[in-house]
Design a protein around this nucleic acid. Structure first.
Length: 556
RNA sequence: GUGCCCAUAGCUCAGUUGGAUAGAGCAACGGCCUUCUAAGCCGUGUGUCCGGGGUUCGAAUCCCUGUGGGCACGCCA
């Protein structure tokens, strides 16, 4: 357990004891203990920890909050780690701790090294996170890139918080879209070989599929020119998907994203899982027929209306496949399933949760993170994106342009439900305007100090950390100590953007410390202590950057 | 029209589940390198938290309502 968490719980226990005693003495009335918090106050002048318990008790006890706070304070046992307790404001009780509690953090971080920040909060709960799942009919665009950065960081942070995380990519290699893809490929194939055929109106206009078809022609020439359309399309689709999926995999790998499972939609059709899940829903009475199609009564579960799951032509919809897919996820033993979708899919959330419920699972175990759209800016202008015209900036081009680190940091920096204005010029700037460099620079500076250390090695024994008394030193330790709780908070709330903020704050405190405290000073004992603090800062910074998927350079 | 998301400093955004005087970055101005990396630090100020009601010890946060913007409402995915 982290030091901050254990102090918090110690204080909570003391408060509870004090209240219990006050009740026995008849000083406070009331039956149940309110759900109070022991929090770290925003203002440093309000102590190390504070509680609102007195304000919450006042209603039942029928006393003024400050009077209750007074009684609780008097009943607190004077522990040696407690320096003083104050009543403040409307009735807060502020706890000031002896500085020694913080010194313990430094050796703990160094001993933990790459494990510092990790915890067992999730207790190995099996979680599956599905993200990106882009159509394999094209290249990855900005929305996919944001999903990739978010999903991968959420996976890493949940892993660090003690969950057993599996990353999964769902390949939409079946259904209407693939039909359409086949028609587009076929048209390009015939056109490239000199046939005058029209391009399908709703086809994939992107340049990239022309290249794909050119590659195929390089292999098989006109072998499929005069065979029947069915055979030609099947061949072209299979070959093109292979190429596209390989490209998607390698772009994501370059972006630092590695999946545990690549799940093919096609297998759900072939295995009969779609048919059987429809049968299961039918037996539950959630299916009816209307106008030749099969409908799911999703309106029973909070959806706005019922949804078609099998078309009148007998072909199941995307939704049917998705239901089978989610059943498959839960059957694999995941007790928590998280999907990351673009905000334009929000209408899908209620019906998906409804379907999960209809299958007998708790819909709360399915979490859907909707992320708002990404707008690209360059030179102050919006860079237009249109899949239809085939003009959009790809993930691969983005990495060429701004690099992996800046791209990942920028995507994770914003909360998923806020629109993201991605400023290409800013992300590219090698200057202080760029928050990525600011954080990385702190790490590089630390390494520079450690290399310049005349002793070479860090003294680990008999170092007097209590020499670290400067404000900047204490603030830095305080922030370092927060990492485990920050990780848990980001994990359980599915808010990876907390990590970039934390990284920035930590870097900022380090830079302040760097400017006000000289590490390689002539005072040997102080130097030893500061070197350990600096090393702890290095580990903390590196660990949080690693979770975000951003490199921690030793030199810049 | 119905549903979901959003509205906080000039700009881009945080705000730890309802707490104390609402915070960062950028942009602006002034200062700091003979010393571990100036890609840095220190200082200067800015708010109708979209408007209006309500809930309570206490609201940017929760409820209602109005306004403005985004998205979705297909036998597409």
């Amino acid at each position: 357990m982290s030091i901050v968490t254990s102090m918090r719980e110690k204080i909570r226990a003391e408060i509870e004891k004090a209240i219990e005693q006050a009740k026995q003495e008849g000083k406070i009335k009331g039956e149940k203990l309110p759900d109070f918090v022991v929090e770290v106050p925003r203002e440093k002048s309000h102590g190390d920890f504070a509680t609102n318990v007195a304000m919450l008790l006042c209603k039942e006890a029928k006393m003024a909050p400050r009077a209750i706070a007074q009684i609780i304070t008097e009943n607190l046992v004077n522990e040696d780690w407690l320096e003083k307790v104050e009543i403040a404001g409307p009735g807060f009780i502020n706890f000031y701790l002896h500085k020694s509690w913080l010194y313990a953090i430094v050796p703990q971080v160094i001993a933990g090294d790459e494990n510092y920040g990790r915890s067992n909060y999730g207790q190995g709960e099996k979680v599956q996170i599905e993200f990106v799942s882009a159509n394999p009919t094209g290249l990855l665009h900005m929305g996919n890139a944001r999903g990739a950065a978010l999903g991968d960081t959420l996976s890493s942070v949940m892993d660090a918080a003690g969950f057993d995380v599996s990353r999964e990519f769902y390949i939409n290699d079946a259904g209407n879209q693939i039909e359409n893809f086949g028609k587009s490929l076929e048209a390009r194939y015939l056109q490239l070989l000199g046939r005058d055929v029209p391009f399908p109106e709703d086809g994939y206009h992107g340049e990239d599929i022309i290249d794909t078809v050119k590659n195929i022609i390089g292999d098989v020439q006109d072998k499929y020119l005069d065979v029947d359309s069915e055979e030609r399309r099947t061949f072209l689709v299979e070959r093109a998907l292979q190429e596209k999926i390989t490209a998607i995999k390698s772009d994501l790998a370059r972006f630092g994203v590695h999946y545990d499972v690549w799940f093919s939609e096609k297998t759900l059709h072939e295995s009969g899982e779609i048919t059987s899940v429809i049968q299961e829903l039918r037996e539950q009475g959630y299916i009816y027929e209307k106008e030749g199609a099969l409908w799911l009564k999703s309106s029973l579960f909070g959806d706005e209306k019922d949804e078609v799951i099998v078309r009148s032509n007998g072909i199941p919809t995307y939704f049917a496949a998705d239901i089978a897919y989610h059943k498959n996820k839960f059957e694999r033993g995941f007790t928590r399933v998280i999907d990351i979708w673009g905000a334009d899919h929000h209408g899908h959330v209620a019906r998906m949760k409804g379907a999960v419920q209809a299958l007998g699972y708790n819909p709360d175990n399915l979490g859907v993170i909707l992320m708002q759209l990404v707008r690209l800016f360059q030179g102050g202008e919006i860079v237009r994106m249109s899949k239809r015209s085939g003009q959009y900036i790809t993930l691969s081009e983005l990495m060429d342009e701004v690099g992996k680190d800046a791209a990942r940091f920028f995507f994770v920096m914003r909360s998923p439900d806020s629109h993201l204005d991605f400023d290409l010029d800013l992300a590219k700037a090698e200057s202080s305007e760029n928050p990525v460099y600011y954080v990385q620079y702190a790490h590089a500076r630390i390494n520079s100090i450690l290399k310049a250390n005349p002793q070479g090695e860090l003294a680990k024994e008999k170092v007097d950390l209590s020499l670290l008394k400067e404000e900047a030193e204490l603030d830095l330790m305080r922030k370092i100590a927060d990492l485990p709780e920050e990780i848990v908070g980001a994990a359980v709330n599915s808010e990876p953007h907390r990590l970039t903020r934390y990284a920035h704050e930590l870097a900022s405190l380090f830079h302040s410390f760097y400017n006000s405290c000289r590490v390689l000073t002539d005072e040997e004992e102080l130097r030893k202590a500061r070197l350990l603090l600096v090393d702890a800062a290095r580990i903390t910074l590196r660990n949080v950057l690693t979770i975000i998927g951003v490199s921690a350079p030793e030199r810049m």
